[in-house]
C-alpha cells in the first residue's frame, strides 16, 4: 500500500536491516518487525513511558519516533540490558527493592533509570523522581523504583 524505506539499525548490539513504511514508529518496528516486545504500547502519545528505549544514548518514547529517523542509529531496549543472562545491578535492585508489581511499565522504567544512571551516577531522590516522571506506574511502585535506583547507584560506587 505504502512505499517502504530501507533502514539499518543496531538493536541491542545486533545489526538489523528493515524495510519500513515511512509512517511507522520505532515502537512498531521493534514490536512487530523485530518482535522485541519489551517496549510496551500504552498511550501512544508520549505520556506514559512504557515504550521507552535508548537511541544513541538518549531515552525516547519510541511511540513518538519514526523508524526512519533512527536509520543508522543504535537502539537499546530492556531486552538488551542484561548480558549473558546476568541481570544488571539496576535490574537486580528493582527485584530486591520490590519495584515490580504487574511489571508492564517496568521495561520502560528500567531503561529510563539505566539512562539516568549513565548520565548521573549518583542521583538524589529528587533527581530520580524528576528523571523518571515520564514513566507511569499504576501499581504505584514509585518509592520502590527510586529505592532501586539509589541502591544500584550505591552498588556501582562500591
Amino acid at each position: 500500500m505504502t512505499a517502504t524505506v530501507a533502514i539499518t539499525l543496531r538493536v541491542n548490539g545486533r545489526l538489523r536491516s528493515i524495510e519500513v513504511a515511512p509512517h511507522r514508529t520505532l515502537l512498531d518496528v521493534l514490536r512487530d518487525d523485530i518482535r522485541l516486545t519489551g517496549a510496551k504500547e500504552c498511550c501512544l502519545v508520549g505520556e506514559c513511558g512504557a515504550c521507552t528505549v535508548i537511541v544513541d544514548g538518549r531515552t525516547v518514547d519510541s511511540c513518538l519516533v519514526l523508524a526512519v529517523e533512527v536509520d543508522g542509529g543504535e537502539v537499546t531496549t530492556a531486552e538488551g540490558l542484561a548480558r549473558d543472562g546476568t541481570l544488571t545491578p539496576l535490574q537486580q535492585a528493582f527485584l530486591d527493592e520490590g519495584a515490580v508489581q504487574c511489571g508492564f511499565c517496568i521495561p520502560g522504567q528500567v531503561v529510563s533509570a539505566h539512562a539516568l544512571l549513565a548520565e548521573n551516577p549518583d542521583p538524589t531522590l529528587e533527581e530520580i523522581q524528576e528523571g523518571l516522571a515520564g514513566n507511569l506506574c499504576r501499581c504505584g511502585c514509585y518509592w520502590q523504583i527510586s529505592d532501586a535506583v539509589i541502591a544500584a547507584a550505591r552498588n556501582d560506587a562500591r
Binding site: 516486545t37 510496551k40 531486552e79 542484561a82 527485584l95 515490580v100 511489571g103 517496568i106 528500567v110
Partner: peptide
Amino acid sequence: PQRVGGIARVTGQQEYLAD
C-alpha cells in the same frame, strides 16, 4: 524472596497479552 516472574519482568521478556 525475589518475586516469582521477576526476572522476566525486568528484562522485557514477560509475555503480556499483546505480545
